Simulated scan of single mutants.
Amino acid sequence: MEIHPKITPIYQTSVFKFDDLNELEQYFGEPGSRYMYSRNGNPNSDELAEAVNKLEGGAGAIATGSGMAAIFAALLAFCQAGDHVLCAADIYGGSSSLLNAELSRMGITVTYVPFEQLYDLGQYVQPTTRLLLAETLSNPLLRVADLRQLATECHKHGLKLVVDNTFASPIITKPLGLGADITLHSVTKYISGHSDVTAGVVVAADAEVAARLKQIGMHYGLTLSPMESWLAVRGLKTLRLRVREHSHNALAIARFLQEQPAVRAVYYPGLEGHPQHALAKEQGQGLFGGMMSFRLADDAAVVNGFMQRCQRFPFAPSLAGVDSSLSYPLGTSHRYLTAEQQQDLDITVGLIRLSVGIEPVEELLNDLQQALKG
């Protein structure tokens, strides 16, 4: 009896069988024709990688065990010992920790570039500089990078542009179409979307780079497991719908927070007063995503009181699930930056990051209102 499932089954196997030596030779002679060992690739991880690759308009992709593994693979695709990389100062704390604590041990050095100087890299470029790592929407202050201008500046200096597109998702922005060389995601966040998967994806604009990524994934053991891949693919199918609802709710909440006496600043690119609002509107096709930050008084007691009163925004140091949550950059994602770096990035005691979910927006607004009243 032939079986034709509508949904790809979970290939929960570590190895695949061969009938004879001819099939073994086919595996090595015709890459992609069959599977041998799940670390090298499996149908589920390949399905996820190809689905995100199609959304991003890439030449090939790999699925990894986490967003951090995706960042690692993307950097190694272009770098080796002795190389130098540039990194936007406004970056996820885990990215800077990877560069500072681990890649430095491999002989890869880093220089951080302030947001205001991203489009004038000449003073930072060294003979060994290979790439710039930046985010579409920065974590946690939601600054918006002009990716087309950034790609032009990088390529003028012979650099590759690697873009972490996690906060935006390919529904809002497609970095490769704007000139980036690699785009990556923590699939844990919007692509999977249900806070039940830890995964990453790296997408390359060039087929040779995509082949290098596959080699890195295999040799370093970064390949995502079948079950996690299957769950991520399931989540991905509703990404377009979810991003619209995230964006709708977030804009309503950002406008509400602007009017609250206890709130000193709101950082959301959908607000007309955001410094990069026009760019975000053009680059994001009118959608601004579900991530925002806002600032209360720089008083831990004020922050703690707000967190304790929140019912619909639990304190959970991640983001992008269908359920709303809040996070605290100073104590989580950017905890290991120096005090000077935190000050330069304006990450203070009163800064709170919201991940706005897809619940009825009235329920979220009511909860924030009572939590802010104290």
Score class of each variant (00 low, 15 high):
35 Y>C: 08
106 M>E: 13
163 V>E: 02
265 A>N: 12
343 Q>M: 06
149 Q>I: 00
283 Q>E: 11
230 W>Q: 08
327 S>C: 12
40 N>D: 12
314 P>H: 10
164 D>E: 08
218 M>R: 14
369 Q>H: 15
342 Q>F: 01
333 S>A: 14
152 T>W: 01
140 P>D: 08
175 P>S: 04
67 G>K: 05
252 A>G: 02
87 C>D: 01
287 L>W: 06
233 V>L: 14
206 D>A: 09
89 A>C: 02
151 A>Q: 08
346 D>F: 07
87 C>E: 10
62 I>L: 06
95 S>M: 05
360 P>M: 10
8 T>D: 11
131 L>A: 15
116 E>C: 02
60 G>D: 05
202 V>H: 02
308 Q>K: 13
202 V>I: 07
119 Y>V: 03
121 L>C: 07
251 L>E: 13
327 S>D: 13
247 S>M: 06
336 Y>L: 14
210 A>Y: 04
342 Q>N: 08
112 Y>E: 11
188 T>R: 14
60 G>M: 03
36 M>L: 15
32 G>M: 12
15 V>L: 13
301 A>S: 14
8 T>G: 00
279 L>H: 04
321 G>R: 07
356 V>Y: 05
151 A>S: 14
76 L>H: 14
269 P>L: 12
334 H>G: 03
156 K>M: 04
19 D>G: 13
72 F>Y: 15
66 S>E: 04
316 A>H: 11
181 D>M: 02
87 C>G: 06
326 L>H: 11
53 N>W: 02
40 N>E: 13
96 S>Y: 11
151 A>D: 10
79 C>I: 02
208 E>P: 00
361 V>S: 06
77 A>E: 05
346 D>W: 09
274 H>L: 10
349 V>L: 12
328 Y>Q: 10
